[in-house]
Computed example of a mutant assay.
Amino acid sequence: MEIQFLGTGAGSPSKSRNVSSLALKLLDERNEVWLFDAGEGTQHQILQTAIRPRKIAKVFITHLHGDHIFGLPGFLASRSNQGGTDPLTIYGPSGIEDFVKTSLKVSQSHLSYPLKFVLLQHPGVAFEDQTFKVTFDRLDHRITSFGFRIEEKPHPGELLIDKVRAAKIPSGPVYAALKAGETVTLPDGRIFAGHDFIGPAQPGRTVAIFGDTRMCNRALPLAAGADVLVHESTFGPDESQLAKQYYHATNVQAAALAKRAGVGRLLLNHISARYLSPGVAMLEKTARQIFPNTHVVKDFEEINIPFRSEQSEPAVTVKS
């Protein structure tokens, strides 16, 4: 599981940051990529990565401001032009279906794949299957803006091969049966229960991805205990009044939420073009004074999300 940031800027693109979009890469888990927001130029950003548009199976839209959706029609059309045939589902606030369908109709764009819309209204579950659950709630912005909580289901425990061998169970299909938790009877009459040879389940990982918001109580349950929280940082530490006025958050407010929620790591994005390199360093430094494991991300940066037992490994790689 990895997050690759395609756009980390706020409002308008700049020379160093495109507008909002990130890809949650679930290639090992389900051979899919999920896109969160699609600001203008998202398809151009994807061209600079190894992401294949046909692998993008779901698009989650946090809210309908232009810097989060203007790139969506172009991406959908290009996915079709590049031979995409697998279905794609778009999750988002009321109005996203009208925006997409009108854009495609006016431009006479015809897709080669089925397009499904799931309009999010009352807080709850947006998607769930055997491997993942995605819940959402409304945050506090000038228009409806959602935060998403992506929870990976636990992974079954591994077969304890040393224990199997110690029991002198011969190799073969019986190993698969034991791993599946079945009870097996050997030719010599011995009976073994699979659950006796399976290690503990591996807890899944949790990622919280927020749209634009100022501080609100509904953010806490979405972020609680997450391995990674992606949060906007439109304003700096001394701009709390401006952040409140414009329905955004400061870096230190995001850090305070991360600390309170007990997250593993805070990733700050939606950075104003007012903050150049020294300003970005300041945002990170002042946020770390509250929540040390904070990082201000940049375009194309990839963040690996390891299992908790592996979190001593490096978690950040930067595209060369």
Rank of each mutant, 00 (worst) to 15 (best):
A258V: 04
S240T: 12
I271M: 05
N31D: 11
R288Y: 13
R218T: 09
D227K: 03
G124E: 02
L104T: 09
G66P: 09
I69A: 05
Q108Y: 08
R274L: 15
P187F: 08
R288G: 15
G262L: 05
A287R: 01
G74M: 01
L35R: 09
Q130H: 13
E232D: 13
A208L: 07
G199W: 05
S103K: 04
T185G: 07
V228I: 07
M282P: 10
A254M: 06
D299C: 07
Y275S: 11
V230F: 08
D37E: 04
F117V: 08
P73W: 02
H63R: 10
A243W: 07
F192T: 01
K179R: 15
C216N: 06
G124L: 01
I46G: 06
E310P: 07
T286R: 11
H231E: 08
L229Q: 05
R265Y: 12
Q253K: 12
Q289F: 13
D67G: 12
V316E: 13
L229G: 00
Y246A: 06
A23T: 01
A226I: 00
I305R: 00
S309R: 14
I90T: 00
P278L: 04
Y175F: 09
T183L: 02
S103L: 08
T85A: 11
L220E: 03
A226C: 06
A176P: 07
E313N: 08
L268Y: 09
G264K: 02
G71P: 04
A224H: 14
E97W: 12
D37C: 10
N251D: 15
Q253F: 08
P13L: 02
P187C: 03
P114R: 03
V184M: 04
M1V: 08
A77K: 13
Q108A: 14
G181Q: 03
K298R: 15
N81K: 12
G236M: 10
L111C: 03
Y247N: 11
N293I: 10
Q130C: 13
A38R: 07
A167S: 06
L178S: 06
E152K: 01
R214N: 09
F132W: 09
A77F: 15
S112Q: 06
H248S: 15
F300K: 13
S80K: 02
A249I: 10
G204W: 10
Q202I: 15
P123L: 10
G9W: 03
K179L: 13
L22G: 12
A254C: 00
T317I: 14
L47Q: 14
G74D: 04
A315D: 14
A226F: 00
V118H: 12
E284C: 05
K25P: 04
E152A: 01
G225Q: 05
K244N: 14
L268M: 10
V164R: 00
G95S: 00
N31Q: 14
P292C: 07
K244G: 11
A177G: 05
Q241P: 11
A167R: 03
L268G: 04
L242N: 13
V230L: 02
F197I: 02
P170T: 08
K55H: 11
T183Q: 09
T183H: 06
K179N: 12
L222F: 00
A193Q: 14
A273V: 07
F192N: 01
V106H: 04
P237I: 14
K259F: 05
L160W: 08
R274I: 12
D162A: 03
V296S: 09
L139P: 00
Q121I: 07
R308K: 07
F197Y: 15
